[in-house]
Design a protein around this nucleic acid. Sequence first.
DNA 1: CCCTAAGGATCGTTGAACAATCCTTCAATA
DNA 2: TATTGAAGGATTGTTCAACGATCCTTAGGG
Lengths: 236, 236
Amino acid sequence: MATTRDQGWLDAVVAGRDRLERSTTAERVADLLRAQILEGALAPGLRLSEEALGGALGVSRNTLREAFRLLVHERLLVHEYSRGVFVRVLTVDDVVDLYRARRLVECAALRYWPSAPEAATTAVRRAIAEAEAAAADDRWVDVGTANMRFHQAIGGLAGSDRIDAAVAGLLAELRLAFHVMGDPRTFHEPYVAGNRAILELLTAGEVEEAVRRMDRYLVEAEEQLVAGFAHLDTTR
Amino acid sequence: MATTRDQGWLDAVVAGRDRLERSTTAERVADLLRAQILEGALAPGLRLSEEALGGALGVSRNTLREAFRLLVHERLLVHEYSRGVFVRVLTVDDVVDLYRARRLVECAALRYWPSAPEAATTAVRRAIAEAEAAAADDRWVDVGTANMRFHQAIGGLAGSDRIDAAVAGLLAELRLAFHVMGDPRTFHEPYVAGNRAILELLTAGEVEEAVRRMDRYLVEAEEQLVAGFAHLDTTR
DNA sequence: CCCTAAGGATCGTTGAACAATCCTTCAATA
DNA sequence: TATTGAAGGATTGTTCAACGATCCTTAGGG
């Protein structure tokens, strides 16, 4: 048994135990594909041929299929029986559903602000500061990622790993739609000041007003995206 | 093109289109294993040997591994590199996190009651009625499943497929812990009347009071479960 | 122009194979 | 006695090849 004096040593070692976790090939392939999908390198609708992709990545079809299972479960790919897997194409209904879920989760998470630990509130402040810095430099793609981080940090106020994972999933799915929006500036710019406004409401103790503000921003973002979809339908 | 008169026919057919979706062997194996895990036939901590299970089910190791991927992603199984997959063993931290997530989602969903479509509110009423009927007949396992359905229906008030899926996932994970509670009666009985009370508050328009009540019930259930865990630790 | 049939391509699944890793056992050592 | 080390057998990680089933394309035929 470990003596009481050992505890300190052990805790320090255990704290970094995630750094020695090995990963399977399927997981690494999934990571690779996920990154490519989220940055738009793999366009929605594209079919991922098992043979072609397996050959290109140097992995077997079986391993690749395991990776596909993960990404299908994350809703980044869709699987059609005997037809293959495709990069997910979001519909307007999907966008509506995603924003409905986001409004529920993020607005509810905002109410945890007063009791949230400092690490969680700091993450919110930092994301806002990053967005403002990026906006000042005209780095609009970075503004977009900082904005994502802001909303992820809002979810983090709830202090639940599962809520964090859920928010991450919702944001990831939405990135499938963000790519159809052309200019990242017009989409993200209004929310740089908007997020700051929410933070100030929170620090002023006006949580319910912050919730209403967040709800409104999310409704606006949804409308903007839906409008973008409608534009696609009429243009093509 | 379909004429206007066709619409009725088509919608009716399309409504049942999910019944013709084929499924892969891996999905069916996952369904089978999921059911067994949720009803407690596969005890938490049990290792699922690829060779043994594959042989027993008559599927190849590769197919079985695809099924494992799905269930690991659902957090019903855990995967340890080069050691195999095991039925998830929930920790106290897991239970706390799960209830934190449930309180956030379900309490937020309750606020959608006034604007929820009738189908959604009816599902809530029906689940409560089922629980009451089962309790009257001393069918306490059925009370438990009706209670699950009640909470699923509460999540359904939000009208989002993704929220529904998230709630289903949280409830499924919790069933891993329910099995450590001995008697389903002592665990579920208090909530038969409690759920009815929430419904009455909702129909009376006292949504915020219903939210507080739900939050309290979930806190109590969490404490009961955590106490059960502590009892396990001291007993064994 | 639509329907049909043939052909090739791809998926779904299996089984075998081999290296890498883990677990158990047992002996050796301090 | 308790810990370390090595041998072995068992299990996982991954690949490959194969075959039937399903899909897609294309070329005729009506």
